[in-house]
Design a protein around this nucleic acid. Structure first.
Lengths: 153, 153
DNA sequence: TATTGTTATACTCTATAACTATA
DNA sequence: TATAGTTATAGAGTATAACAATA
């Protein structure tokens, strides 16, 4: 408390406050808090969950595809996958068609974990989410999707 | 090359693609690339520049205020400030009114550095910035500002 | 007691490059 | 030669807790 609330708003930002990159960083920190506020005790970080989730939707997906879609670098992807494998959440398989590649599939444990997190994370969706109205949230999302080149679905 | 462009879009994301947190992460990575595409050889990272810039607009600001506004934790702020001080870009002063606090001011070198980066970063603003039109960019920005509780200026 | 800043530790994410094995 | 994945190292950024000095 005594967070000195007025102080925050009296700090001049100038054009920095109009900078997309800067505001995006603040927004991501806010969203990060929202994520943990919802998943809370579930033992996943955002990155881990997104990997788990996308594998559950795309069984047999290869690491490289996963990394490209999630914008996770290959070196980091290796660590992520290894950890999730050690936790018994997924299995790795080398296909005969291309023995360099690795196909990823969730174990039953991984599937139920993905389900558990997604059910609270994607539930209803009227989560904290700042003070945005439903239509504002939709507009924001659509613009962000366009910005990052995601199909607006 | 052979980035397998079709692959990226054939990966199913489900409701994850509608998740604000997830899309914000992609957006921040995109913006990060934009930052370096513009500042390029300038020797600053986004965090360092934002600190430098805000001090230049608020001479004598205290570390705690700076951290609150920029959402940078105190432990990390200490490192950032120390580094910028070692590079001769700012000075730290302990005010008599509260000898726990530290007031920050840019050196002439720091001021010209802030000016140099800001002039390219805030110039015109029609930077890469995805495929967003000018009005889309404004809307996106306004919604993000509302989301993070920034005065829409 | 509470606050400001510091130090130390650890973990996540990223960046890079060298390496292997396959193609 | 190019690609898929691995390993190793380094650096940002963050989280946490313990600490000193000051209020």
């Amino acid at each position: 408390m005594a967070l000195d609330a007025p102080c925050r708003d009296t700090v001049a930002l100038g054009p920095l406050g109009q900078s997309l990159g800067f505001v995006l960083r603040l927004a991501q920190l806010t969203a990060y808090d929202d994520f943990f506020a919802v998943t809370d005790s579930l033992r996943f970080k955002p990155g881990e969950f997104s990997v788990l989730w996308v594998i559950s939707l795309n069984p047999g997906i290869r690491q490289s595809q996963l990394g490209q879609r999630l914008m996770i670098k290959r070196a980091h992807m290796t660590k992520l996958i290894r950890q999730l494998e050690q936790r018994g959440l997924l299995t790795r398989r080398i296909p005969d068609s291309d023995r360099r590649a690795i196909e990823l599939t969730l174990t039953p444990a991984g599937q139920s974990a993905a389900k558990a997190v997604s059910s609270v994370l994607f539930a209803g969706e009227p989560k904290p989410e700042g003070g945005l109205s439903d239509s504002e949230r939709k507009t924001l999302l659509a613009l962000l999707q366009k910005y990052v080149g995601l199909p607006a679905a």
